[in-house]
């Protein structure tokens, strides 16, 4: 508890995956981030000048990771998609920034100060979004421990369910292919999905796209690479549609309906 000296003033959206959902969390590790930052200028500057300089940083910028960072300190390119000034009061500038993962906002504040010629530093930082997870979905550790208490002590899990999301939420942004019950277990064993196993799918899928293979109940089976486009899948009566990259569902969750090499009955559906 005593630690955290690294950055006491940094708060906000932190998606945390539990148990078997952990293997999916890497999928959003490098997603778009959005912050609200409080920058303190070391001398007062005309607000229009501040706005002008901040706008210069929208687009591709070069950043060298700070001294105390866990990554190699070589110059790297990061993209800033959007900067909006929310408020300027004296030497304090509150702004919202949408940027590529791995952008140092502390560094950004420092560099803005350099260009303004007055120096500046980051006072506070709040992350308001990571990928599609936004501030209004976030729960405090306090709310969470309360919900856990109510479940464990009062045997009511409704609060806990409301504070959490199923792991499927991590792949919510992916285009999806819904799979027949009979084809589910083969994919859970790592097999490719064939055309007859498809129930429905999103439009606009291209060959090579990352897709989520889902059951008709909405469960994630695997994250896969599409081998055909939406149109091709719709027309195909046979052939491989998608190749699993990361299987999420445990084998045996759905019944085995595919033929084993040596025999054993069962209908081969995919």
């Amino acid at each position: 508890m005593g630690a955290g000296r690294g950055d006491p003033k940094v708060t906000g959206v932190l998606p945390v995956a539990l148990a078997s959902a952990t293997k999916l969390i890497g999928l959003i590790m490098h997603s778009v981030k959005e912050y609200v930052a409080l920058m303190e200028l070391h001398r007062e500057v005309d607000p229009s000048r501040v706005e002008e300089v901040l706008r210069m940083f929208v687009g591709k910028i070069y950043q060298k990771p700070p001294l105390r960072s866990s990554v190699k300190r070589s110059l790297r390119v990061r993209e800033i998609y959007e900067i909006e000034i929310l408020e300027i009061e004296g030497r304090h500038v509150l702004f919202r920034v949408r940027c590529q993962s791995g952008t140092y906002i502390r560094k950004l504040c420092h560099d803005v100060g350099l260009i303004l010629g007055v120096e500046a530093h980051m006072r506070e930082l709040r992350r308001i979004a990571t990928a599609h997870f936004r501030e209004d979905m976030a729960v405090t550790l306090h709310e969470l421990s309360e919900a856990l208490f109510i479940w464990r002590e009062l045997k009511d899990d409704s609060f806990l369910r409301k504070r959490m999301l199923p792991a499927e939420a991590i792949v919510a942004h992916l285009p999806k292919i819904v799979v027949k019950d009979s084809a589910v277990d083969a994919i859970a064993h790592g097999a490719q999905l064939a055309a007859p196993g498809v129930v429905k799918l999103h439009e606009g899928i291209s060959k090579g796209d990352l897709v989520a293979l889902m059951t008709m109940k909405g469960e994630l089976i695997a994250v896969a690479r599409a081998e055909m486009s939406t149109e091709e899948i719709l027309q195909a009566s046979r052939g491989i549609v998608a190749t699993p990259q990361r299987v999420f569902m445990e084998p045996g969750t759905y019944p085995r309906m595919w033929k084993r090499k040596g025999g054993e009955s069962g209908e081969a559906r995919s």
Binding site: G4, V10, L18, L141, P166, A167, E168, T215, T253
Partner: peptide, 30 residues
């Protein structure tokens, strides 16, 4: 007969296949 709509998983399974969007407080590291 098999599988669950993710919302309807029994609570132990719901947790095991679950996630939380935490509002990280100031102080601790991620």
């Amino acid at each position: 007969k098999y599988g669950y709509v993710p919302w309807d998983r029994p609570i132990d399974l719901f947790i095991k296949k679950g996630m939380v969007v935490v509002d990280k407080p100031p102080g601790p590291t991620s």
